[in-house]
Design a binder for these strands. Structure first.
Lengths: 147, 147
DNA sequence: ATTCTTGCAAACGGTTTGCACATAC
DNA sequence: GTATGTGCAAACCGTTTGCAAGAAT
């Protein structure tokens, strides 16, 4: 049923430059077989079933570490805190990773995404397109600082 | 410079069914002239300059109220808490407003270099399309409950 | 007069942090 | 042996809530 063996999981962790522990193995396997986009708390509950002595703090640290090395993805909040604007109505946002500025993109970018394969009868109420990157003000400073 | 008069702001608040207070007036005017997508904390700092005795709690409540009646928009976090997934690489997400489930939408429109009018030299690193709505499991229950 | 709003402070919840102990390499 | 990871508990921070006093209609 589970085609991937423990050996493979260990290899994957190593391949990402991670030290291998039972906790990491358990957390990674849980993530690997999950299609639920679980939260840290959910992962904690799942892992605890097989590995009762794990702590929530470790799950937080481990998921962040996995995310850092690109082993898993994070469906992050768009911004750290809620941000408001007086301009209502549909438009997209560009979030600068450096200065946290949010720029409006008035655009028809809606069009290219309209036919999303795999919608499966999902009833779409709102579409949000968020572009993450660097604004013109922050771009130059990045060039200077190497990467 | 500011084409809109206080009278107009009051009328706008009333038009949205809101009771008018100095605090709301100050907050709305601040939002109206801001292009920065400010956070509650930022709004609080701005309003305090002209209206020192306002409290942060009121700003939170007021912004949420404005959002409820459609006077302002909210650039919300995608989900309440961070959610992870082992599937890396570009794909979009559908977030069910009812059950909080996140579904993957494998879409072919992930070219991050897509030309968005109004980009103004913004350097796009990642493009995130989030569809908010109701999944097939939750849709029926909504039909039954009226709206 | 009654209802809604404000201010304050305490509570909340997800996440992070500090540190001593344990484990991987 | 040394660097790294773990567990625990406390701290953190944005946000929400309860409530008494104040303001709007």
């Amino acid at each position: 049923m589970e085609g991937k063996k423990e050996k493979d999981f260990i290899a994957t962790l190593r391949a990402h430059g991670l030290q291998v522990t039972y906790q990491r193995l358990a957390i990674y396997q849980t993530m690997y077989f999950s299609r639920e986009h679980p939260s840290a708390e959910t992962v904690y509950q799942l892992v605890k079933k097989k590995f009762a002595m794990i702590s929530l703090g470790t799950v937080y640290k481990t998921l962040e570490k996995f995310y850092e090395v690109g082993l898993i993805d994070k469906v992050s909040p768009i911004t750290e805190v809620a941000r408001y604007e007086a301009k209502t109505g549909p438009h997209n946002h560009m979030v600068c990773l450096q200065c946290q500025r949010i720029l409006d993109a008035d655009s028809t970018v809606e069009d290219p995404t309209i036919s999303v394969p795999g919608l499966d009868g999902f009833h779409v109420l709102r579409r949000q397109v968020v572009l993450h990157g660097y604004c013109t003000a922050c771009k130059p400073s990045l060039v200077n600082s190497g990467s």
